[in-house]
Design a protein around this nucleic acid. Structure first.
Length: 508
RNA sequence: GAUUCCGUAGCUCAGCUGGUAGAGCAAUACACUUUUAAUGUAUGGGCCUUGGGUUCGAAUCCCAACGGGAUCACCA
């Protein structure tokens, strides 16, 4: 138990006084509501008669007491509304305790109350509730930050410390209205995507989070242990191989929204667990997938933002299809003048050294190309742009390009300088897949710690035959950041991972 | 991981070149029957992140730890 502040002590004392007087600070019975703050504010003007018999409930966020009449602000799930409380109206008899003691003294900011009454306009024109009944619903023992907005819309005493905001998201959500909007949008994004997929007949599925081989991506995993089997298990870094096994099993289209776990660095764009959406469609290729993705994103943007143009920082991103397409080699040449095609690994390494591009001896041809791309191109790709046709070495799960030697049928979608989607024509030749895994093992021996592991079960599944398939992965957190104009992943996660808090030295 | 800045009341912040703390809001008390960052008067509230050091004296200077922000590198 931490040391109680003066204000916390006072609230606990108030709690005792309430109990002593017979007023339950945490009553069990439901309080029936028939409206909410938003409905009243949006509807009262046009149809005042419909707002004469109201019952609503929420937190008291502000009290303005003026003797025998007071104003307060009530916040419910839809916003805030002002309530007007007149002593002689809520206490028509001699007993004025409800007003003088319960309302004025015992109700603290953050407490829940239920009110009944009718809507009206105050002298200054604000739609408010004229309260005839007041019921105490729940006590708040921990004071909330009091954030005020003045007539010019300027926010005073904002609850703005990022660490506190992230650690106490419940407080952030309560006092910073725009935070809630981000999460409503996030849910809408996911809902819209799901509806789009379902309407095409693709099926939502679930695949294992605990995996004995962490395949499907290049990343360091979290390791755990299963006691009964006495085997190590890993939290998934990807679900790709399982979803392909479902395509092998005969589904035409499967998708999964799910958490992935990567045991790597944390910063404003990386959380150890993050949400990805992966979808696999049989009898399609990556060219088809590009058309699907641009159609999907335009649709999602319009549905959740009302526009296909989204502002982020100083940039205006236009999600209207179609998107620009550039092969990886074209992109590198365009932004650096370097021609990659036909170069050898050692020639590329020399070029990297010349341009101070980070690389080391473990890098194969593919990673050197990727290093050049990251150095010269990525930050320029502000408007949605498909980068296509990647070197075979860096993409062991994609099908060889139908016409270009040494490349695979892959694209990544870049928006605002960051990758938000990755897709292939999936490799379905089990012989080729085995040799690609073996190439990965060689890279691992050279010291590439991101090289992929060989998965015998997956290879066996492939041998049964997989139809030509296109697969896509979209980072949902990143997409949400884009569509809500946020620059930190912590802003789009309810509970971002935080370092453990320092111990309280004052506690016994 | 590297660089850099920061850590003062419940919240947002002042505290200059070292002399053991201030404001607004919140809280407490009183006044006030249409206010809205309500107002007026009064009051209480701080191991100044932690641990060392320099000094007669440290919130202030130095070192370290812990926590955080920003930028860069890697990953989605």
């Amino acid at each position: 138990m931490h040391h109680l502040s003066e204000q916390e002590l006072i609230r606990r004392q108030t709690l005792e006084e309430m109990r002593a007087s017979g007023l339950n600070p945490f009553p069990a019975e439901a309080f029936k509501v028939n409206t909410n703050s938003k409905l009243i504010k949006e509807g009262f003007e046009q149809n005042p008669e419909a707002f004469q018999d109201l019952s609503l409930a929420g937190r008291v966020m502000m009290k303005r007491i003026m003797g025998k009449a007071s104003f307060a602000e009530l916040q419910d799930g839809h916003g805030k509304i002002q309530i007007y409380i007149n002593r002689d109206l809520i206490c028509p008899d001699e007993d004025k305790e409800l007003y003088n003691t319960v309302f004025k003294k015992w109700i603290d900011l953050g407490d829940f109350v239920g009110v009944k009454g009718y809507a009206f306009k105050t002298q200054t024109g604000e739609t408010s509730i004229h309260v005839s009944e007041l019921k105490f619903l729940s006590k708040s023992l921990h004071p909330l930050p009091v954030v005020k907005t003045d007539a010019d819309g300027k926010v005073h005493d904002a609850f703005s410390d990022p660490e506190l905001r992230y650690r106490r998201k419940h407080v952030d959500l309560l006092v910073n209205a725009q935070v809630k909007e981000i999460f409503i949008k996030r849910t809408n994004i996911i809902h819209t995507m799901r509806t789009y997929f379902n309407s095409n007949g693709w099926m939502e599925v679930e695949t294992p989070v605990l995996q004995s081989i962490h395949g499907g991506a290049a990343a360091r995993p979290f390791k755990t242990h299963h006691n009964a089997l006495d085997i190590p298990l890993f939290l998934r870094i990807a679900n790709e191989l399982y979803l392909k096994r479902l395509i092998i099993g005969g589904f035409d289209g499967v998708y999964e929204f799910g958490k992935m776990f990567r045991n790597e660095g944390m910063d404003r764009t990386h959380n150890p667990e993050f949400t990805s959406m992966e979808i696999y469609i049989a009898f399609k290729d990556y060219l088809w997938m590009m058309e699907m993705v641009e159609d999907l994103l335009e649709h999602v943007s319009k549905t959740v933002s009302g526009s296909s143009i989204v502002k982020i920082g100083n940039n205006e991103i236009n999600f209207t299809k179609p998107y620009k397409r550039l092969s990886m080699y074209e992109a590198i040449e365009l932004y650096s003048g370097i021609q990659v095609d036909g170069k050898t690994e050692s020639e590329l390494r020399e070029l990297c050294k010349q341009h101070h591009v980070k690389q080391d001896e473990s890098y194969g041809f593919g990673k050197l190309v990727d290093a050049l791309f990251g150095h010269f191109v990525e930050s320029h790709l502000i408007q949605p742009t498909y980068i296509t046709d990647y070197p075979i070495e860096m993409t062991p799960l994609a099908k060889k390009h139908r016409s270009k030697e040494g490349l695979v049928e892959r694209f990544e979608l870049f928006v605002n300088g960051k990758e938000i989607a990755n897709a292939y024509s999936e490799l379905n030749d089990p012989i080729d897949q085995r040799s690609r895994f073996e190439e990965q093992l060689k890279l691992a021996e050279r010291g590439d710690d991101e090289a992929m592991a060989l998965d015998e079960e997956f290879l066996e599944a492939l041998e049964y035959g997989m139809p030509p398939t296109s697969g896509l992965g979209i980072g949902i957190d990143r997409l949400t950041m884009l569509l809500t104009g946020q620059e930190a992943i912590q802003e789009v996660l309810f509970f971002p991972q935080m370092k453990p808090q320092a111990k309280d030295h004052h506690s016994a």
